[in-house]
């Protein structure tokens, strides 16, 4: 299954990368692959911008604008002027 093409904000700075492998470990869509002791973006259009790779990169070599990929949340965000977030409740228990 594929979504829209050429829209994803994922960027990898190969100069910073030391090939630790965290990004291809955490990516749920196999976007990265190892290439000559570094990471390489194999299939950018498969990225869903979850942000796992950027967050877990110890060298800050990856950037991606992550957010809730959910139309309802985005519409709610537009109407209320807040950052889009899931519909699930945020109620605190203690």
């Amino acid at each position: 299954m594929r979504y829209l093409k050429n829209v994803v904000t994922l960027e990898l700075n190969t100069d910073k990368c030391l090939g630790c492998g965290r990004c291809w470990e955490v990516c749920p869509h196999g976007v990265f692959e190892p290439d000559d002791m570094k990471a390489r973006i194999k299939d950018r259009d498969k990225c869903m911008e979850c942000g796992a790779c950027a967050k877990n990169c110890p060298l800050n070599a990856i950037s991606v604008k992550s957010g809730v990929g959910c139309a309802t949340a985005i519409i709610k965000g537009m109407l209320t002027g807040k950052e889009p977030s899931c519909g699930c409740s945020d109620s605190d228990c203690c």
Binding site: M1, R2, Y3, L4, V7, V8, T9, H29, C47, K65
Partner: peptide, 8 residues
Amino acid sequence: TYTSFSGV
């Protein structure tokens, strides 16, 4: 499980 924020 596969749509991106920018795409949406």
